[in-house]
């Protein structure tokens, strides 16, 4: 692991939300703990950093309100309790009387009331239902961009959608190494690893120049003529109905055969009207080959 790449503090700009994305077990938590200094002996507890662990431990013998006031002040408690949707009733409960989502929000509250400039949240809202999760992330995003605390937010998640909507930069964790934070669309356009590519929705790759590969995204398969777009692979589609919502597409060309099951593609095409040219719109060129996921045969 010592050879693995890990971004340093200097990689994170103020006023931004930095997302870290990766499947569970990819090393997100280990990296965040290392960044703070919790794995040193003796451990380091930086004054400017507030950290929310993935599996937080609220004090069992204190109400949420009391333990939040233990680490923060009344004003911050008032503000953030409202934004997190924590009512007075919930604040006066003990942790054991909370549901999974309430527990996570209470733990987040306890971290936010410290009003520390750097906030590190490890999978903070994984059990919170989507509408509320989006609302909370909006508040966090607004406070980072505004004059309030926190000034800088590092947030890990396996919900790609959350990071896509709310992060400014993205790191990708895999096998214990973490990529440098880069602007979101840049990472999306150049997935650093096959796992990241699959999680972003790329389904396959076809051989490209210089021993590289072009990544194929179902939404970026265009039928018909697109002169302004990237590469063109000649071939033809063969469509069969597999189910009501899933159609199987077979792409036949001088390239290897590609079959894609994708519910979102247009269906009103008849076999005889299919073009013999298929455009893969603006495909990312990557140095690795993307093994096909289930439903795709290359």
């Amino acid at each position: 692991m010592s050879s693995s790449h890990l971004p340093a503090w200097t990689a994170f700009d103020d006023g931004q939300v930095h997302g870290i994305f990766g499947p569970s077990g990819s090393g997100k938590t280990t990296y965040l703990r290392q960044l703070i200094g919790l794995n040193r002996t003796p451990p380091c507890y930086p004054n400017e950093v507030a950290f929310l662990a993935q599996d937080p431990h609220l004090i069992p013998h204190d109400t949420i309100r009391r333990q939040a006031l233990w680490v923060g002040d009344q004003d911050a408690l008032q503000t953030w309790a409202e934004r997190l949707g924590l009512s007075d009733d919930i604040l006066d409960r003990y942790p054991r009387a909370l549901s999974g989502g309430e527990y996570q929000r209470a733990a987040l509250l306890r971290v936010l009331v410290t009003e520390r400039p750097v906030l590190i949240l490890d999978e903070p809202l994984s059990q919170v239902q989507k509408t509320l999760r989006v609302a909370i992330l909006q508040h966090l995003r607004a406070s980072v961009a505004g004059p309030d605390h926190p000034r800088r937010l590092i947030i890990s998640s396996h919900h790609w959608h959350d990071l896509w909507l709310f992060a400014d930069t993205l790191m990708v964790a895999e096998h214990g190494s973490v990529t440098e934070p880069k602007p979101l669309d840049e990472v999306y356009r150049n997935p650093p690893t096959p796992t990241a590519a699959k999680l972003f929705g790329y389904v396959a790759s076809v051989p490209g120049p210089r021993n590289g590969h072009w990544l194929i995204h179902p939404e970026a398969l265009g039928l018909g003529h697109h002169p302004s777009l990237g590469i063109t692979l000649t071939g033809s589609f063969h469509a069969t109905m597999v189910g009501v919502s899933i159609r199987q597409w077979t792409f036949i060309s001088d390239q290897p055969r590609l079959e894609i099951e994708w519910p979102g593609l247009p269906t009103r095409l008849h076999r005889e009207k299919l073009p013999d040219q298929v455009h893969i719109i603006d495909p990312p060129w990557v140095p690795y080959h993307l093994k096909t996921s289930p439903g795709v045969v290359l």
């Binding site: 703070i36 919790l38 950093v49 950290f51 662990a53 431990h57 233990w70 680490v71 410290t114």
Partner: peptide
């Protein structure tokens, strides 16, 4: 650890 991280 979590209480120490929050400044206690």
């Amino acid at each position: 650890e979590e209480a120490r991280v929050l400044g206690k």
